[in-house]
Design a protein around this nucleic acid. Structure first.
Lengths: 327, 327
DNA sequence: CTGTTAGCGCCTTCAG
DNA sequence: CTGAAGGCGCTAACAG
């Protein structure tokens, strides 16, 4: 590969001249500029990205850290992040935190290969984040409670979402309402649960431990949890799944047992993923402003990078999407 | 941020000693090693990724280039790519080619910030790819026809897929079969069309230009194309959509016009995306071995990086998934 | 306007 | 086993 040196030699100028010419500085005469550009083209020269980043201690790229690149559920969020970043001339890369301390995400975070990061991944520890966070390196965490001078939290009001979902069920006359949670580490899941429990209390209904089952945000988890629920004998009147994926698994379990939705049991999900409206019956659920969350996160990063003072906490609200899975 | 220099100073040794100790070289005594590690920990030292990459001219990371990070349809493929890469200790980053020559993808490719790339994106030109391809920098292209000494093509046998889909329709007694294509630049779409046309010919059926409509692989595109089809007056007996997304849009259009599937018209898609089985009716389609394609692509890269000679072309075959959208 | 110079942070001979 | 020295490719003062 040709380096800047080769270009300089071929063009018969100094290395710095090449650098200036190629980076569009004004102080180079059009003639030499042409000469340099010609030489560069001739050698098929491309600057080495590291070298310049090393020098400038800035990469102009932001990392979006996801727990698993293959998950299709980040789509809207990613879109928000992406649009804002390209609009501001920043590069965006997505990397996975799969593999824990050895993961790509950890590497990029720790070795400061990026200028900032947005993290939506539970399999990356608070510790790693705190170690990496520092002045001038903005980190935004989504769905995570983490107080630190240098990290900023963006969250959806999951308490409200959980409350609204439960209230909707109650208003439809449903009283026995089960809750299938997400993984224990999920802050989101916890808050949804709180919303659920609070709604029950507010309407003077029992919060019955028997109807709280642990899931894990996966379809299989929802399926298994629902099987357990069915196995318990008596069924609740409604089930609130902490996310849509689990609701889908649950619906499958009900259908296999000839339990009709919503006639025999009502179900409500959370997220409003693409699939939700295509289910039979279409799934009533809580929509999260994912696009907005992504866009906001990226905005905050850019502001921080620009030296603007920002809040350390942001909350977005949810919306109930009524479809056919609730009586 | 602490640098290697600071660690050396604190530990009271030379910089090279720190480097050796931290990189696990044998020539350092356990005692000094401990001292160094202690100092590093104390300073919360993290090496600067660029600097070492710059020196070693190797990044240990592979880029997966997608036309749009937000598209949820790469899920399976990404999974294949990811699993193979982590299993081999390589880092993987996904980047978008949105933005053409200024995109993150182009930058990473040209400025050699990665050791290799897998490209599944039509909005990145052959030219950019060819310019970047060179000895020792493996590039795999998916769904693209590009002959070059340094680029390797992995493709799914779309001709076969198109043929099988069409043949299935014909075997069900359907004769008037429309084809909704993808975007003109898509090599995949073209090959599917060829399979379609060939099947028609082989069964002595007319290839009727009136029933070939241009789509763009999006749901909206499928919807619009279908509206056009309906507007033409007489309906075909079946429609072969070049991908599932368009089929979904198409089904919606038919439903809005009270045209029943499969009673009034049969539809077949292509891809077998997640949604396909949840449609009403569940969509008959052609499954592509996407996971395998991703895993294969990554394997090839690793082999190349290891200096193994590899073929320059790979083809994978498809599978017909029969559900309820064909009479 | 152009060239010289001094690093960015790290790795790697090469002599002690 | 350790330390000094050189350089990866590029940028940015600072002179000329």
């Amino acid at each position: 590969m040709a380096t800047i040196k080769d270009v300089a030699r071929l063009a018969g100028v100094a290395i710095s001249t090449v650098s200036y010419a190629l980076n569009g500085s004004e102080k180079i005469s059009p003639a030499t500029r042409e000469k340099v550009i010609g030489a560069a083209r001739q050698l098929n020269y491309q600057k080495n990205g590291f070298a310049s980043d090393l020098k400038r201690t800035k990469t102009n790229t932001i990392a979006l850290i996801l727990s698993d690149l293959a998950g299709p559920y980040y789509s809207e969020l990613t879109k928000g992040v992406q649009e804002v970043s390209v609009a501001n001339g920043y590069d965006l890369i997505a990397c996975s935190s799969k593999g824990g301390p050895l993961s790509t995400a950890t590497k990029f975070l720790k070795e400061k290969r990026v200028d900032g990061a947005i993290i939506l991944a539970h399999n990356i520890s608070d510790e790693v984040i705190v170690e990496s966070a520092r002045q001038g390196f903005p980190i935004i965490v989504l769905d995570r409670h983490l107080e630190n001078e240098f990290v900023i939290q963006v969250e959806v009001d999951n308490f409200q979402g959980g409350f609204v979902a439960t209230e909707h069920l109650i208003e439809k006359g449903l009283k026995d309402i089960a809750f299938i949670s997400g993984p224990p580490r999920s802050h989101d899941s916890k808050m949804r649960y709180k919303g659920y429990a609070t709604a029950l209390k507010e309407y003077k209904l029992d919060v019955n431990g028997k109807w709280e089952i642990h899931g894990d945000f996966t379809r299989e988890g929802g399926y298994r949890a629902t099987k357990m629920l069915i196995a318990q004998g008596r069924l609740p009147e409604a089930v609130f799944y902490a996310n849509d994926e689990m609701a889908i698994g649950g619906i499958q379990a009900f259908q296999e047992n000839k339990i009709r939705i919503p006639e025999d049991i009502s179900v409500i999900g959370y997220d409003d993923i693409q699939l939700a409206e295509f289910m039979t019956p279409p799934l009533t659920t809580i929509r999260q402003p994912k696009y907005e969350a992504g866009a906001l996160a990226m905005h905050i990063i850019l502001q921080q990078l620009a030296g603007v003072e920002v809040n350390s906490y942001y909350k977005l609200s949810t919306e109930l999407i009524t479809r056919k899975s609730v009586k």
